[in-house]
């Protein structure tokens, strides 16, 4: 679904990525982790085309993103959805209107059907129906994220990009959001690429994990990464928080 080859990113003299390779397979949930400032969000922004890498090749759904005409790019963008950290809802529109935006832009369905699709999405992300008429400022952080997710899912994308989906949520809300993403991923057959800091999310829903470290990616399952000898990865997964999440993950498996 996503193929990144030999990606380099430089900001002035500062090198962020030096030869990043990544494959995301169809139907999997891939978590991207890394220290603060390691360039996780930059990588995400480059894949969705908000930034240009200094060198390297990015293919999404089999198309090289740097060599698309404007028209092809728009068509490709309709096939993925992105959830920003705080939802990034359009503040002048209600939740319902926010979700209708991509539907109105990319399809020419009748208005009543668009409205109904939007209402279904609102219900699917677990928002109460009366939130449809509310403005983003009237919602809590968790609800804004859910509304942002509903907008990202409006066009039934094949790939869903998530930027720190559980950041800023309380543990209960975060666990519920993980569960929501997991169940939507199954029922809609999504491929999910998420940037996260949340160890619990990694254990709960990620099939594979990519660690951005020393300007490169190390990809593996939780099991293989636990064996990894790199000091940062050891600290990450075997630190006190890592152990707690591991225990919770095991308990959930049982």
């Amino acid at each position: 679904m996503i193929r990144v080859r030999g990606l380099h990113t430089r900001f002035g003299a500062q090198v962020v990525h030096a030869g990043v390779d990544l494959d995301v397979r169809k139907g999997e949930v891939l978590g991207l982790v890394g220290g603060s400032g390691a360039g996780k969000s930059v990588l995400l922004r480059e894949i969705v085309g908000l930034m240009q890498p200094s060198a390297g090749r990015i293919e999404v759904l089999g198309q090289d993103t740097s060599r698309l005409s404007e028209e092809e790019r728009v068509r490709l963008q309709a096939r993925w959805g992105m959830l920003f950290q705080d939802g990034a809802l359009f503040s002048s529109l209600t939740v319902l209107e926010n979700i209708q935006v991509p539907l109105k832009e990319h399809t020419s369905l009748p208005d009543d059907l668009i409205a109904e699709i939007a209402r279904v999405k609102i219900a699917m992300v677990g928002l109460p129906p009366d939130s449809a008429g509310k403005y983003p400022a009237q919602l809590s952080g968790g609800m804004r994220k859910r509304a942002g997710l509903a907008r990202a899912l409006a066009l039934d994308p094949e790939i869903l990009f998530l930027d720190e989906p559980t950041a800023g949520l309380d543990p209960i809300g975060a666990a519920a959001f993980d569960q929501l993403i997991g169940s939507l991923q199954k029922s809609l057959g999504l491929t999910v690429f998420m940037v996260t800091h949340d160890l619990d999310s990694l254990y709960a829903i990620c099939d594979r994990i990519a660690v951005l470290i020393d300007k490169r990616l190390i990809v593996g399952t939780i099991r293989t990464l636990l064996e990894e000898s790199h000091p940062w990865i050891r600290d990450y997964f075997h630190g006190p928080r890592g152990r707690a999440a591991q225990a919770a993950g095991r308990a959930a498996e049982r």
């Binding site: 209402r119 279904v120 999405k121 699917m124 129906p129 009366d130 057959g189």
Partner: peptide, 23 residues
Amino acid sequence: DDLCTLLKEVRRAVAAAVSAPQP
């Protein structure tokens, strides 16, 4: 099976959306 799951999911969502009265 996967289509069935989605159909059920949408049925549930529609039911939730419709049951609430629109002010």
